[in-house]
Amino acid sequence: MSNKKALVLAALDGKPVERIPSSFWFHFLDNEAGVDAFENPELIEQVLAGEKHYIETFKPDFAKIMTDGYFHYKHPQVANAKQVSDLKNLQPLADDDRWFTDQIAYAKKLADAYGDETALFYNIFGANSTFRFMQPDPTKGEALLVEWIKQDPETVKQALDVISSDLAKLAKRVILEAGVTGIYFSVQNLLGEGVNEQTYQEILAPGEKAILKAAKEASEYNILHICGYAGHRNSLEWYKDYDVKTINWAAVVEGISLAEGRKIFPNHSVIGGFGNLKTDLLYTGTKEEIQAEARRIVAEAGKTGVLLGADCTVPKDIAWERLEWVREALR
């Protein structure tokens, strides 16, 4: 294990470190959620080349393995569902389904090349986001899921539990078979009229906790990403009892700094601090402003159990020197 990887794992463990790590990530495809790398394998080769170039050139402290082109859950019954009853009696995918094997092979190429040097976290979405990405218009997927929950909550819960069981299996397999460090598990509150914390805890949370449980059986080092993006805000408290080592949330979007969030998650290490939009400081600020902000975040949040990053993916055209300015400030 390299000194850099050991540094990151120590920070995740909440141990004192000689330098606070940082990392940022971005998409490699223009339409990461709308394209299908299972049907067009050349797309994942493009993503793989981008990942390799970034890791070899920028040498991030740790890396999120982006899954551009792999957002879709390749289950024909879910893909063809036109009404909630179409989700009844959903069965898991076979272990040798390409949805598993292609992703494991992709992750293994990166883990074999860089896993000894760099901590790698494979991106996995929760079942509600996975369902949304499968819709012809993903922007309407959340509203459709909310409507189906109102119509038949038991059928939706059973279907999401099956989807989550496959996501759990994928999480465990990319760690054990591909050799990644852990998963980067993305969740969001389900928004809509009539949806509240009780609905979320009854229908979505069991599957999400099962995914984290499966990942933890293979690795202690997993990250929960509470995705606040494009105006989508979350109640962080909904995830207080999720069994995961590290939490990343949209500090700028939610208006909850790392320091404030540590009060919600007192037993976790945390990642983030910077906004990720083109209007935010990381993209627009001077070197002096960005480095001052990095030092300010650390001064408030503390020097143990803290890693700097962004709310979510940063723009893919961001100048990498801006990311290096953060790392330089932390030295």
Rank of each mutant, 00 (worst) to 15 (best):
C312D: 04
T284E: 13
L190S: 02
S164E: 06
E177Q: 15
A294M: 10
G255M: 13
N80E: 15
R331N: 15
A119I: 07
S219W: 11
D95I: 12
G302V: 09
Q83L: 06
D36S: 07
K88C: 11
D241E: 14
K287D: 02
V180E: 02
F133D: 06
G272E: 00
K316G: 12
V252K: 09
K287W: 03
I104H: 02
A250F: 03
L93Q: 10
D137T: 10
T57H: 08
W99A: 12
G273K: 00
L176Q: 15
P266E: 05
V270G: 02
K59C: 08
A250Q: 06
T67Y: 10
A94W: 03
I55R: 06
N123I: 01
E56T: 08
I20V: 11
N276V: 01
E208V: 07
Q198V: 13
D241H: 08
T118S: 08
G231H: 12
L282H: 00
F26K: 01
V8F: 04
E260N: 12
V84F: 09
Q151E: 15
I65D: 01
G179Y: 07
I297E: 03
A113W: 07
L330D: 05
S23T: 13
L110S: 05
I271R: 00
P60L: 03
G273Y: 00
G285W: 02
L90D: 08
L9A: 04
A37I: 04
A49Y: 11
L236F: 13
D97Y: 07
E321M: 11
I256Y: 03
D137R: 05
P136L: 06
S22V: 09
P60G: 04
S85Y: 09
A292V: 07
E202L: 13
L145N: 00
A81T: 05
V162K: 02
E321Q: 14
G228N: 08
A215G: 15
A230P: 08
S186L: 12
T304P: 06
N3D: 14
E147D: 14
T304Q: 14
P76H: 06
A159P: 02
A218G: 13
H268G: 03
A301W: 00
G273A: 08
D102Q: 14
I175R: 00
D317I: 10
N222H: 09
Q198G: 10
I247K: 00
F121L: 09
L12I: 07
L308C: 12
E51L: 07
A113R: 10
